[in-house]
Structures are given as structure tokens and as C-alpha cells.
């Protein structure tokens, strides 16, 4: 499998050709994910709310260092799937998760898990950018402090690096003490990504990270996600099939059968889009293509 190429090259020579008003930092990409190695093993996962099953019997491996896209119609349980992975389903009293999710040696569903430590290793980005109503600086500083980074200069280095990684440093370095809510939507979303990255997670869950953004910001975030490939394991929900095709190494297609979400097909992105095995997948892909 080949490393995906960014839709836009960020190097300076090319800039006149594709006028993007952003430059991304030099986030180091890791190994391309040629050798599939399971980072998360999901087996027979089902999620229910108030005893009504919304996602049933999902089994798949999330490969380390790869970008896995989750696609499917609204309401088929993609967000529920993501929330089960970092145990955010715990917040919903009526939610119940069954099956198993193997991460390292632990089963996230049945074992007793230190959720705070887990969520540090599995970060999450939401559809709506949700920077805290604090200064840009404190948005990143607060999580670091909460995770026990006492040394101020260590925190400063991490914050600066993280803001550079998402290409925000040059835009905000003179206004770090201003409110994060004053940033544009795209900047806010990149700040949220920086906030997740500053904790150096292994896995990033992204729930439609571009759908609330304008096309240019969306493009920048997309490129950013591509650059995470190799270094982080990324699971991204997207309604934009073209985007999934551009950035993902693997794709999972969810569909509702009798009001219950099911995993219909999972495989390498190219295979799923070009030679889908299931008729439903083929229909969805071509249908959505128009």
C-alpha cells in the first residue's frame, strides 16, 4: 500500500500555484503504514441506548499508523462507535457497550480501565470545534497541567511545537493570551487538533472534523490529517466520500439494517471504493457519487 499524498503541497515554491493562506508546520511523518499491525482490535462490538441496539456486531482491526475512514448514512452509529473507543459512552447513562475492544493487553469494554489515562492515549476531535472559553495558550496549557506537567518550560516547548504542527503558530504567536473563541472556525478546529496532539496520543478519533468548516479551512485540516499518517493512528468519520478516498488507507462502511447499524464492508480504501464486494457498498458509493 502506498503513502497517500497531500492534496496540496505546502512547500513555498508551489505557493503561487495553489494559493493557500496557511502553512503547516513540519510535523514529522512516521513510517508509512505498509505492514498492517492492529492497534485496536474490535470484536463483536455492539452499542445500545435505553436497551435499543443502534450498532450491532462490529468486528474490525484498526491498523497502527494508518488512517481509517468510517463512512455511512446518518444515524448508523458511527459516532457511537467512536465514543465506545475512548469510553465517552460512559457519559451517557443509558448507553451500554458489549463485545470487546482490545488495546494493548486490555479489553476496554470489560476490564477496569483508568479512563483518564486512556483518553490521553486516545484523543478525540469533534464535529463542532470546541475550544474552551480560555486564552489560546491556556487551551493547551490546561490539559498539560492536568496531566501532571509541572515544569513550565517543558509545557511551553510542547505547546509551541504542537501549534507549529497544526500550522497555527505563525497566525497566533502574537495573540496567545487572546480568547480562543475569537479565532475563525478553521483555526479553532486546528487549535482543537493541537490541543489533542499536545498530549501526544497514539490514536486520534475524528468525528466529521471538516464538516463545519469552509472549503479552504477544510482543505487545510484535511492536509493536516494526512500528515498525521504514520505517526498517529487516525480514525475519521466523514460524509465526504471524496475526502475519505483522498486521505484514508482503510475504509469501513456502515449501514442500517432494520434500524440497527451494521458494518457492511471493511478493507483497504482503494479496494472498497473501486471493487466493493458488497452490493450495498457499491450502491452507496455510486449513489453518493451522483
Amino acid at each position: 500500500m502506498t503513502q497517500k499524498q497531500p492534496p496540496y503541497k505546502a512547500d513555498k515554491d508551489n505557493q503561487d500555484e495553489r494559493a493557500i493562506p496557511y502553512t503547516l508546520g513540519n510535523l514529522e511523518a512516521g513510517e508509512p503504514c505498509c505492514i498492517p499491525k492492529a492497534h485496536l482490535q474490535v470484536q463483536n462490538l455492539s452499542v445500545s441506548y435505553n436497551n435499543i441496539t443502534v450498532l450491532d456486531d462490529v468486528s474490525l482491526d484498526i491498523h497502527k499508523g494508518c488512517i481509517t475512514a468510517l463512512i455511512g448514512p446518518s444515524g448508523c452509529g458511527k459516532t457511537s462507535f467512536l465514543s465506545a473507543l475512548n469510553k465517552l459512552t460512559d457519559l451517557t447513562a443509558s448507553a451500554e457497550v458489549k463485545g470487546s475492544i482490545l488495546f494493548d493487553t486490555q479489553n476496554l469494554v470489560s476490564d477496569k480501565i483508568d479512563v483518564m489515562a486512556l483518553r490521553r492515549r486516545i484523543g478525540m476531535i469533534f464535529q463542532q470545534p470546541n475550544p474552551f472559553p480560555l486564552s489560546i495558550w491556556r487551551n493547551l496549557d490546561l490539559p498539560l497541567r492536568e496531566h501532571g506537567f509541572r515544569n513550565k518550560s517543558v509545557r511551553r516547548k510542547k505547546i509551541e511545537k504542537s501549534l507549529q504542527d497544526v500550522g497555527l503558530w505563525d497566525e497566533v504567536k502574537d495573540r496567545l493570551q487572546d480568547s480562543a473563541l475569537a479565532l475563525s472556525g478553521g483555526q479553532q478546529q486546528r487549535l482543537c487538533i493541537a490541543r489533542a496532539l499536545v498530549l501526544e496520543p497514539e490514536i486520534l478519533l475524528m468525528d466529521e472534523p471538516c464538516s463545519a468548516l469552509d472549503p479552504i479551512s477544510s482543505c487545510v485540516v484535511e492536509e493536516l490529517i494526512l500528515r498525521l499518517q504514520g505517526k498517529y493512528t487516525v480514525i475519521i468519520v466523514t460524509h465526504n466520500l471524496a475526502q475519505a478516498r483522498r486521505i484514508a488507507n482503510y475504509a469501513a462502511f456502515f449501514w442500517m439494517k432494520e434500524r440497527v447499524g451494521k458494518l457492511i464492508e471493511f478493507g483497504q480504501c482503494q479496494h472498497l471504493f473501486e471493487t466493493p464486494k458488497d452490493d450495498l457498498t457499491a450502491a452507496y458509493i455510486s449513489g453518493a457519487k451522483g
Binding site: N86, V115, M116, A117, G123, R195, A196
Partner: peptide
């Protein structure tokens, strides 16, 4: 805003920290 609550917890912050630093203020 409920998304701050979720955001804080998704960052592995404790509920106490979320309440003290974000929700109460």
C-alpha cells in the same frame, strides 16, 4: 456549552478539573 464538558473529558481531564476550570467560570 455541553461540548466543553465533552471536550474536557475527552482530553482525559477529571470532572473536578472540568468543573473548576471551565464550567463554574
Amino acid at each position: 456549552n455541553d461540548s466543553w464538558r465533552k471536550g474536557a473529558l475527552a482530553l482525559g481531564m477529571t470532572r473536578t478539573a472540568a468543573i473548576w476550570h471551565i464550567l463554574l467560570p
